[in-house]
């Protein structure tokens, strides 16, 4: 049960949010030009990181905005929260 600092609303309880999987997987602009393997890479393959993971969250029961979270999967510590389209902080 963590607390997530929504970049639009501030700190809110975990239960207000929904998880959206790994972040920074960009939908290919020209899917038709990809091979089956390349498309499968986009569609199915995920890193499943142990440690610092960049992931998407949606403030589903709040402002409904999507944003990114850098979370350590070993202890659920959230290192940073940043908006869609922004690069992960170093």
């Amino acid at each position: 049960m963590f607390i997530i600092n929504c970049p639009y609303c501030g700190e809110r309880d975990h239960s207000e949010f929904s998880y959206g999987g790994e972040a920074h997987i960009v939908r290919p602009k020209q899917p038709t030009e990809l091979s089956d393997d390349q498309w499968a890479e986009y569609l199915f393959m995920r890193k499943n990181v142990k440690g610092l993971q960049y992931e998407r969250w949606n403030h589903a029961h709040g402002c409904r905005q999507w944003f990114n979270v850098a979370r350590d999967t070993t202890n659920d510590k959230i290192h940073s929260v940043y908006k869609m389209g922004e690069n992960p902080p170093k």
């Binding site: 929904s18 939908r27 998407r56 949606n58 409904r64 905005q65």
Partner: peptide
């Protein structure tokens, strides 16, 4: 609704 919002906000802003 959630899925459409997702695409609008993240893939096609």
């Amino acid at each position: 609704m959630g899925k459409l919002e997702d695409y609008l906000q993240t893939e096609w802003p």
